[in-house]
Simulated assay, not measured.
Amino acid sequence: MSDILSQDEIDRLLQALKSGELSAEEIKREEKKVKVYDFRRPSKFSKEHIRVFDMIHENFARSVSTYLSGRVRTFVSINLASIDQITYEEFIRSLPAPAFIVVFSAPEFAGSAILEMNLELFYTILDLILGGPGIPNVKRPPSEIEISIMRKEIMNILANLAQAWSDVFSFSPTIESIENNPQFVQIAPPSEMVLLVSLFLTIGKTEGFMNVCWPSSLTEPFMDRLSSRNWFKVAKKEQISEKLQKDLLTNLNQMSTVLSAVLGEAILTVREVLELEVGDVIRLKSHKDEDIVVNVQGKPKFLARPGTYKGYRAVRITKIIEPEVEE
């Protein structure tokens, strides 16, 4: 809209002022709002991007909570604490020394990311996995043996992270390196903006944070997928798919099938069939003390013993016949 008024608009304003419909104060121009922009901390992630990160890592927190609860045989609570947009230098400076820092990457990534875990959490999980009480009292950096034991757990945690991301961007994470000193971890320039996802873990009486650091250069190639519209489309498809599966299962459970128990079989020639008379005995291939075959829709499914139950002819299932696999 142009800031220059036409002659007609000026005449109407003057007329409104004369008639008292408008006052001089009401037509004063409102000061334009100026947004401060720090070029040293450029914003790389929009509110929509952060919203999608929030939803992805909420799912990640739930899946890791379930996984770790099974591994350490005690309840593990994991909640998404915060998502902050900071520089890589600020992230590195915020880490304690020593620390447990996992640098991971994937063939689909244009760079590396970081998973960092509080040492108290590290030693608690390790102690519980090895059968201990899970009381951390170690302040030293982890040894090579301890790191080797925990490497498998970290890989499973990263697999849960990849699963949480699978609806937005699929990747196969691998561990590049594990460091104890934050100053040795340089995966991005100090001034590069990163998205820091902080998760708060509670394992027994131990509490601490686990952080995931996503550099902006790594997420840039798939940034266009980080929209809530795409996320809700995927969620809706999953809901439709789950409902369809449930409906199909319900319909299958209500279907009628033909169940037949074959007492025995015999092969006769056409002449022998034509010569059969009342009172003749046909010898079957099976004996009275052998199992008989029970067919479902004409196909053998069970072996059973014939008999009676509450006055009715019946069969008792003795074995399930495994289907033959065609080579």
Results as ranks from 00 to 15, higher is better:
residue 9 E to P: 01
residue 10 I to F: 02
residue 24 A to E: 14
residue 24 A to T: 15
residue 38 D to A: 07
residue 39 F to G: 03
residue 46 S to H: 03
residue 49 H to Y: 05
residue 51 R to Y: 12
residue 58 E to S: 12
residue 65 S to Q: 08
residue 75 F to R: 13
residue 76 V to H: 09
residue 82 S to R: 08
residue 87 T to S: 11
residue 91 F to I: 00
residue 95 L to E: 01
residue 104 F to Q: 02
residue 114 I to Y: 01
residue 122 F to D: 00
residue 123 Y to P: 02
residue 136 P to I: 07
residue 138 V to S: 01
residue 144 E to C: 06
residue 159 A to K: 14
residue 163 Q to D: 14
residue 165 W to R: 07
residue 168 V to E: 05
residue 170 S to F: 12
residue 180 N to K: 11
residue 183 Q to V: 04
residue 186 Q to D: 09
residue 194 V to P: 06
residue 195 L to Y: 00
residue 200 F to W: 09
residue 208 G to A: 06
residue 215 P to F: 01
residue 216 S to A: 12
residue 219 T to L: 03
residue 219 T to W: 00
residue 221 P to E: 02
residue 221 P to S: 02
residue 224 D to P: 08
residue 227 S to E: 04
residue 230 N to P: 03
residue 231 W to I: 12
residue 238 E to L: 11
residue 247 D to N: 12
residue 249 L to I: 11
residue 255 M to I: 08
residue 258 V to G: 03
residue 263 L to K: 04
residue 271 R to Q: 15
residue 273 V to A: 10
residue 283 R to K: 15
residue 286 S to C: 07
residue 287 H to W: 12
residue 293 V to I: 15
residue 294 V to E: 02
residue 295 N to V: 11
residue 306 P to K: 07
residue 310 K to T: 09
residue 311 G to H: 07
residue 318 T to S: 13
residue 321 I to S: 00
residue 325 V to G: 05
